[in-house]
Design a protein around this nucleic acid. Sequence first.
RNA 1: GCCACCUUGGCUCAGGGGUAGAGCAGCUCACUCGUAAUGAGCAGGUCCCCGGUUCGAAUCCGGGAGGUGGCUCCA
Length: 649
Amino acid sequence: MAGQEFAVSLKDGSERRYQSGTSYLEIAQDISQGLAREAVAAKVNGKVVDLSSVIEGNVSLEILTLKDEEGVDVMRHTCAHVMAQAVSRVFPGTKFAIGPVIENGFYYDFADHVFTPEDLPKIEEEMKKIVKADYPIVRKVLSRDGATQFFREREDRFKVEIIEDLPESETLTTYSQGEFVDLCRGPHLPSTGRIKVFKLMSIAGAYWRGDSSREMLTRIYAVAFAKKAELDEHLRILEEAKERDHRRLGKELGIFMLSKEVGQGLPLWLPNGARIRRTIERYIVDLEESLGYQHVYTPHMASVELYKISGHWQHYHEDMYPPMQMDNEELVLRPMNCPHHMMIFKSSMHSYRDLPLRVAELGMMHRHEMSGALAGLQRVRMMTLNDAHIFCRPDQIQSEFTRVVKLIEHVYKDFGLKEFYYRLSYRDPANKEKYVQNDEMWETAQAMLKQAMDDLGLPYVEAPGEAAFYGPKLDVQVKTALGRDETLSTIQIDFHLPNQFELEYIGEDGKGHRPVVIHRGVVGTMERFVALLLEQYKGAFPAWLAPVQARVATVAKEYEEYAHRVAQFLRDMGLRAEVDDRSEKIGYKIREAQVQKVPYTLVVGEKETHGGTVSVRRYAQGDLGAFTLEEFAARLKQEVDDKELLVEA
RNA sequence: GCCACCUUGGCUCAGGGGUAGAGCAGCUCACUCGUAAUGAGCAGGUCCCCGGUUCGAAUCCGGGAGGUGGCUCCA
């Protein structure tokens, strides 16, 4: 076939012809020397390959540079190899596991050497030398036996295991640069000198193959970019994220505290946090009641027998606080209140006409989360769930699901949450036996959820295999300030609990039928939600949520009485106001109010006392000038009623 | 739970084998003040805990606890 010509269509629509065996680098050179200099990889028929690969058919070709995100990812991958090479030089004997590309950078997992933070600059130094040396990167195809033997001799146990687990059909390749060889699928840069800027960020532990029963490796995280400005920007964003960290803001603003004397993961809500929480609780309970939910209270404890019926005990008892034995009962702190709500449903007869029945509760749960997972209010051992269980007929699943999605949209809008996405989780079609056995229920329920989302016109990602064992679900994923994805809201269809509790309603036919249960959380837990809001607002809560909505600051002692009259006037209208009458300069009081992110500071001095006015200063906007007390009160009241979000000036 | 790192006054942090330092906050006094820090003074610490090494440990070593970054988990 040598000598055959192939057609290459380029991004701009033009077409060129090249001899079989021509490399993509040569093609790049043919297009322009400038492009060849910048080229880092080739995208052939949509697949990213090495520039050294050769043409073997008619293709569509795009030469990737560091202007392309995919090109940058190739550089990041090569950078991971360079880091491994540097480690092998600085710490001989270190073994290599895997080193993939991640968002903004890469990591590499190592074994047989324990790294400390002081090692990072040494490794970076060596990496710079490797980049400067500009080693050509060479790809080599190996036979299975050859590859196994090669890595056995080097006692690279992880690489050997990877090879053994790869399917027979996989072509095994190594990439080498200088003295360093790594098993890798590629693609890579043509040489190490093409790497631009990188920075080693942190050291972490990670289980080999993500399996907690296996060896713990040392992972080094790093970032890499095409330009120094991008690295600087990335570091700036990280710095900014630290300022939004809810743990820091929570302390500064008196929202919550944690102490080992109280116990790990058991937060105390301080007055400011409690006010915010109470406002949210009133809001969500009122909203849910208006939508036909019935709020209940149920105990924090239950007999372990209840959780045996629900199945929680069998599945989760390791994460539950152990039973307390008293009299003839064994009690556990509840990790979930679903069983309690099942019992409420069961306590009376239900006609099909009564459904859907929506039982809701702001219930406290206790779960023994692993100590390493605890984090401020984001992950705690006692949490308050905004929980509800909807008991409905199978034909009502779609309409009830739609109602909940609309509720979620409504709540997110009120809180100004915009960075989120929907994830629709189905059962894994290849492993149906892992789930509750009821094919028809699964198929129709999954179709109903999808149809509901399509009817609502909302975008979502589908996640086959992510469903709970008892039914499909929709999760709403949000991003925290530090970039982690977490689930805020969830709607879960449950075919299991109604069976466990033998729930029934009387149908039109006069016979008993099994209802479906929909679990749903909108604001998730109060703890996590407030943590999220702290980060979202950088601690500057909109007036309707702020612990103190207006602080009246006196210019001097003689205006104290008027200041207190102003505050009382506002409080009488249901607004949260307080007076700062300390003997400090007005500048000091204003600064403190701003630092504490109080929405309104009302300055009162001689002018205001005589005119019955207040000088209004809005957080993040500055001095708004004088208002009569009534004008200001009406304005603030309106803002609170409208749940107006704070707009930065 | 696992790996690494961190832990010094209420908070943020400096220091570091010879029994401790700053700023802020607190308290007292003076100032009575107009839109992001008035000044002076005072008080405040088992340097996380328990062992060990040493003439001597906050400092070095070991163990524990809590926190942080990850991993795993997340009904």
